[in-house]
């Protein structure tokens, strides 16, 4: 059943927020690729999802909540440069593309959901 107060909206909103924050972290890593002593960072996902007040029908489903439980952690890497910097250009460029595409996919999903709702609202009463 389609519902305007669908739980999907806050869930997607949350995912978008996480993806945007992650993009910020990846940008920061790329920016600090030549900064001595800088440690590459990432935003945790699994932990974030676990900590959410879940309202789900199956243990395999994701829930939604606020984004205050997101946490930045240092990426474990073996590629530490002599100046103590741990940014791996290849990893960051891959994550940059992946994360950007994921964001666009989420936006498209959200748009599709809104189109479906609009179609029901506008055309539902017609015979």
């Amino acid at each position: 059943m389609i519902n305007v107060h669908d739980k999907m909206f806050p869930a997607v909103e949350n995912m978008l927020d996480w993806t945007a924050k992650r993009q910020q972290t990846i940008s920061a890593n790329l920016t600090n690729i030549d900064t001595p002593g800088y440690k590459a960072k990432d935003v945790s996902f699994a932990e974030h999802m676990q900590s959410l007040g879940l309202d789900k029908t199956s243990a395999a489903h994701f829930g939604y909540s606020d984004t205050s439980s997101m946490r930045i952690y240092e990426v474990g890497t073996t590629a530490e440069k002599p100046n103590g910097n741990t940014v791996d250009l290849d990893r960051e460029m891959t994550e940059l593309s992946k994360n950007g595409l994921q964001y666009i996919a989420l936006v498209q999903f959200l748009n599709q959901k809104i189109r479906t709702l609009r179609s029901v609202i506008n055309d539902g009463g017609k015979v």
């Binding site: 920061a28 935003v43 997101m70 946490r71």
Partner: peptide, 9 residues
């Protein structure tokens, strides 16, 4: 919202 902040250069 995230501890540690985000850093430019």
């Amino acid at each position: 919202a995230v501890s540690g902040g985000s850093e430019g250069v």
